[in-house]
Each structure stands twice: as C-alpha cells, then as structure tokens.
Design a protein around this nucleic acid. Structure first.
Lengths: 233, 233
DNA sequence: ATGAGTTATCGTCTCATTGACGATATACGT
DNA sequence: ACGTATATCGTCAATGAGACGATAACTCAT
C-alpha cells in the first residue's frame, strides 16, 4: 500500500492587530474555488521539513533562509482514509510564524493567496479547518512557554509590539506594566539593543531583539478567560 | 511520487522505578537482530490513529479499549529520504503511556519485545533513537502541564505512586509533602475514592483516580536540574 | 514656548504558589 | 508497648503575578 504525501502550512501572522492565516483559493478540483491552506507534494528526494521550508519560501516569496527568520515547526500529520477524494493522501502539517512584513504574497501559481483573520473564517477544503484549529492552539500554547512571540515581530521590536502579539494571539488584553516587567525580568526572553524608537507618539521605547532562551522560566500563562482545552489526542 | 507509511510506537511505562520503553528485536533485514521501536504499516482503509491503536493493542496483548486506558497521542512524523534503505518510508510516531501491569508482551509475531530503561539504551534501528528521544522529552514536558502521569498508574493509585511516576520520568526526587499538597490542591488533578490501601508498610494511603482536568493550572514544573532543551523544530 | 495627550518605564502593595522542613497520624512487626 | 515506616497536615520565608499609582520622555496643537 502506498500513499501520496503532502505538506500543508498553517502560516500565521499578525495583521491589523488580528491573528491571521494565509489561505489560498483552489484553482482545481476538488474543492475548486474553495479556501484551503497552502501546501504541496513532498518531492522524491526531499525531507519533510525541507518540503515545508520550500513551500514557505514559495508562499512568502522570500528565499528559504529569510523565510526561516520567523519560525517553522511540525504540527502533526493527518491521514484519514477519506480526507482527500482523489485517494489516499497523508499530509504533514507545519506551523509557521512569520512577521507581518512579507506582503500578502509574491505568488507564482495561479492561485490567489490572502491573509484572513482566524476569527470568523470561511469554510475550508479537506480537513483544513481542523488542522488550522490545531495550529492556532499550538501557537497559543507556545507563547506561554517559549519566547516565540518574537517570531511575529521584525528583527528589532519594542516591548509594546511584543505585547500586541500576545494580545492578538490570545485575543485578550494584558497590562502593559506587568508585561514589561515580566519580559524584561525573564532571562533570555529579549535582549536590549541600546537603540530606541523615534518619531512616534509618546515616549520613545527601547528596541529589543529575540533572546537566546529556548523556553521561558517561569512561563507567561494565559489569563483564564483565553485558555482553551488542548487539541484531542 | 508515492510513499510507504508506517506508524511507530514509543511505548513508555515505569518499571522498577525506571522510565522504560518497549523495544522489539528485528527478525528481518534491514537492521536484522537489532533493536527497534514496535510499528507497522498503515492499512489501506485505516486512519493513522487507528493504526497506532491497533499496534498498541497488538503489543500489549490487550483489546484496544483496555490499551487506551493509558494514553496515546501523535508524536510526530519522520520522513528523511534515506531513513529506510528499502525505499521512501514516512513514519508517523505515536507516544503511548501505559501502566506497568501489561506484562512484557503477549506477542504474536516472532519478534521478541522487552521493556528497556531509557537510560543506557542500546543503539536502535533507523532513526528510532531520535524518535525515542523526542517521545521521552514529550512525556517529560507533558507531566508538567497535564495530569497524564496517572496514565502510568493503575485505575486507583496513591499520591506516593503518582509521585514515583514523576520521579522516574524526570529522574529526580520530589518532596513528598509538597507534592501531596500540590496534587490534592490542584482542581481536577485527582479524585479521592474514599478507599485506602491496607496491608502495606506504614500508614495506609488514600486511593485516588485520575481527575477530569485536561491541563494543570498552575503547572507542576520540573526542578531546574531535570529540565532539558525542547526537541528541535 | 506651553500645555495636553500619549506611551514607556519604574515602584508599591497584596495575594497565591512554592520550596524547605517540622510535627503528627496511623499503620506494621517485634 | 515500642520502634519503624509512610501518609498527611502545618508553618515560614522567598518568589512571582495581578492591580494600579507615579513619573519620564516624547509629539502635537495652540
């Protein structure tokens, strides 16, 4: 028994203060004209992570190394026998967190791609709604225990920008003062650059870069209201 | 391009106070005679999770519903082009946490299976060392944020048994008094049955069952010494 | 220039949680 | 009855989080 193997991407970014996902419009059946996650087949001599990186580079229009400036991790595999009417297809989903900078798309294929807020989504093709839901929950959980929120930010960012990432992903409000204390007092969360913003409203803010810590100790837990049940099995 | 798709199991249990994994001895090439994780091909009309559940039932010798008394979750997929010399094989790894009760195996195949402590492991076939390492780290992390430690215990257990699970998985010692306070004061972690142990050394202990909470709030964090870096991407 | 508005940053207070560890309870074996 | 072993409860100090006051350092309109 053999299977087709694809990679699908849950690409998340923050646009206009809303957590958004990149969706394409399918140009061919099945689900022609419907919305779907971007993805494609794994090449014969390609590792899964490489295939995901290649798709990410294609969608962002950036070279692979620039696309990796954000974050890319495996999310999970989906292989229900009937998930694709064309036959037995197993897809390995990857979660990508990208800064807003890359414009909606410098696409190559005919299919149009757009950033869509994850709240109030249209129906998606295949089992992509489930994959997306898993990806969003993974992102929400990861912000608690890792400094990955910075993956949504440009190379240098202010504490307020980082806070807005948390607020968008968790759909909640955080106290700017307590957030500032937490971020700056947690070792390896962010690194001060010495530079500051200028020309914006209010007092200039220090600029930071992403710190070296792979995990946060202690974690920055979501307020109870924004916490959800973890994905099933 | 088509692929063979397999599921591999990282089955963990606590034996003699040591976190242990079920390994088989391969009866056929490649890696003939070598140690490997149990696994097998996904059937033509089978979902991935069903395949994992089937393999788990086969290895434990228990019916599927009994095997699921522990915990089974998808760990990740591994698909490097050269990971299997026979050709292009993508494996979806699952992590299973099982109580010690099921004996080393009521196997059906010729291949022998044994529980082996995860410390001081023999070399494994394919990329199974990496898969196992990812599984162990997943289990360690999950004990922090979920009440899953109970999946290693029989249906009714004492706080001390639960503590020994943590101590085995994290390879650390925990203060019995603080652990008791934490477990009993965290809502939904465990439920008292009203029954107690009898006939053992020392004061009888209350028996508990697993609570309903899907996650622990706040988490039960590992002491710093036993914390590790999360798995790569 | 001056004051109002805006945002960043620092401090304070209180409460919850944790880690260290003493004290007590309730069994068993002799 | 007494020692030993384990379970369970309590106390205390340190730490971290949430609520919020106070100040600092800008921009902008007048």
């Amino acid at each position: 028994m053999t299977f087709a193997v694809t990679v699908d991407l849950v690409m998340l970014t923050i646009r206009d203060g809303a957590l958004s996902v990149l969706l394409i419009r399918r140009a061919i059946p099945p689900y022609e004209g419907g919305r779907a996650l971007p993805g494609g087949f794994v090449l014969p001599e390609e590792d899964l992570a490489d295939a995901a990186g290649r798709e990410l580079a294609e969608e962002t229009g950036l070279p692979a190394e620039a696309a990796a400036a954000g974050h890319l991790e495996q999310l999970g595999s989906y292989g229900a026998p009937d998930r694709d009417p064309r036959g037995r297809v197993v897809t390995v989903a990857y979660l990508a967190l990208v800064p807003d900078a890359p414009s909606p798309r410098a696409g190559s294929d005919a299919a149009a791609a757009d950033w869509v807020p994850v709240e109030g989504l249209p129906p998606l093709a295949f089992d992509h709604e489930r994959i997306l839901a898993d990806g969003v929950e993974r992102a929400r959980a990861k912000l608690e225990y890792t400094p990955l929120a910075a993956a949504f930010c440009p190379p240098e960012f202010t504490i307020a920008e980082l806070r807005q990432v948390y607020e968008a992903v968790w759909a909640t409000k955080l106290d700017p003062r307590n957030f500032h204390r937490k971020v700056t007092s947690t070792d390896g969360f962010v690194e001060a650059t010495g530079r500051s913003t200028a020309g914006e409203r209010g007092r200039p803010a220090q600029l930071f870069t992403r710190g070296a810590a792979p995990v946060l100790h202690p974690p920055l837990l979501r307020p109870d209201q924004s916490r959800q049940l973890p994905a099933l099995s």
